[in-house]
């Protein structure tokens, strides 16, 4: 019973990290119809930056902020310098971000070296909480709370603010939104920045669990894809449900069908694609 509770809780914690990543991916898609293949690379970059800042300052808050802000700056720069020129060609965007992912991957190798690194959580968040025989890492509790908080903030911004209204309009119909005079240039830059910020923040927050290592960029990308395809491209609610589903399915799958663990991730996606191609919460 305890083992099951731990497994589900783990799934939720892992799902929280997935949500940080996939919410950014799905927002960028919803507003700009872009598949950002470099999203995993931004995640990795955020993790590395956070580890360096943590070493230099010892402040976890600074480290996490630096992880997010650095990728946000890079994202906005990329949007302005390049993606903007090819906004009407989705294949070009995909190929561009694919190239960007390779470049970021190689640059992190030059800067941070190739050895796997794990961020050490700050003193207040390390160690475990214990209830009798039930032991659970404190940091994971923090990750779950943070994931919920980010979800709440994003939901608030989307539902209550003018920016959010614009975003919703774009998700529903990008062409119409442009027709009614949404200032797309600024909106796109901001949204791509926010998307990159969430990727970098995800990397920083995930760093004490997943760490930073070569190849991680293309390991987390498929997970993001599964989440957003399941939840529905462009849907924030879908990303939340998808993240939790994938996190828990991964955790239980590894326990119940260890040899098939990769299938427990992808099988639901294949079924959803076959039955409901637009995803659980997506709009056709």
């Amino acid at each position: 019973m305890l083992a099951w509770a731990t497994l589900v809780l783990n799934g939720v914690a892992f799902g929280s990290v997935l949500f940080l990543m996939s919410s950014g991916f799905t927002l960028a898609f919803g507003v700009m119809r872009i598949i950002n293949v470099a999203h995993g690379a931004l995640y990795l970059l955020g993790a590395y930056v956070a580890i360096s800042v943590m070493h230099a300052t010892g402040s976890f808050v600074l480290a996490a902020a630096a992880g997010g802000v650095s990728t946000m700056a890079l994202g906005m720069l990329i949007q302005r310098l390049a993606l903007e020129r090819i906004y009407d060609n989705q294949l070009a965007q995909v190929l561009f971000t694919m190239g960007l992912a390779f470049v970021i991957g190689d640059v992190t190798l030059v800067v941070w070296g190739g050895h796997p690194q794990v961020l050490t959580a700050p003193a207040g968040l390390s160690g475990s909480v214990e209830f009798g025989p039930f032991i659970y890492p404190r940091y994971r509790v923090f990750v779950i709370i943070l994931g919920a908080a980010v979800a709440a903030i994003l939901w608030g911004v989307i539902a209550k603010t003018r920016l959010g209204a614009t975003v919703r309009a774009c998700v529903d119909d990008a062409e119409m939104a442009q027709g009614v005079g949404v200032h797309t240039r600024r909106l796109f830059t901001v949204m791509f920045g926010v998307s990159a910020f969430l990727a970098g923040l995800g990397g920083a927050i995930g760093a004490p669990i997943i760490g930073a290592a070569r190849g991680l960029d293309f390991e987390v990308l498929p997970l993001t894809l599964v989440v957003v395809i399941l939840g529905g491209l462009g849907s924030l609610g879908g990303a939340l449900v998808g993240s939790l589903f994938v996190g828990i399915a991964d955790s239980l799958g590894k326990a119940l069908f260890p040899e098939l663990s990769y299938f427990t991730l992808f099988a639901p996606m294949a079924i959803v694609l076959a039955v409901r191609p637009m995803g659980l919460f997506g709009k056709a």
């Binding site: 083992a3 731990t6 914690a13 892992f14 955790s251 260890p258």
Partner: peptide, 17 residues
């Protein structure tokens, strides 16, 4: 005997077992 695929992001599910 527990087997984890290479590139497992989160080991918690295995450790719980």
């Amino acid at each position: 005997k527990i087997w984890a695929p290479i590139g497992t992001a989160d080991y918690a599910p295995y450790i719980a077992q």
